[in-house]
Amino acid sequence: MIGELSLAVAAAVLLGYVLVCTLRLAIGPTPADRAVALDTINTLVVAIMVLLGAALNLMIIMDVALVYALLSFVGTLYVARYLQEGLR
């Protein structure tokens, strides 16, 4: 019981960090800064999903975390490509 609670608390702490990164996402002077912030948020969200899946005992959230990890990677690659050559 206390184990689940500590996992949930850790997930909440990581959620706080996501808010800190969102600040950089909002103010970042260049598009590249925003992309970096988004990449960081993606990593944190995967960790949050895994922690919550264990805390709430929902295996489906962990499956979503796996898919999210791979799709966010593809998304980062496309953002990088867009930064490099613009919309073509």
Binding site: T30, A35, V36, F73, L77, V79, A80, R81, Q84
Partner: peptide, 11 residues
């Protein structure tokens, strides 16, 4: 991913 972002930023 970070390598792709860094290279794109430099280019």
């Amino acid at each position: 991913g970070s390598h792709a972002l860094a290279r794109a930023a430099h280019r």
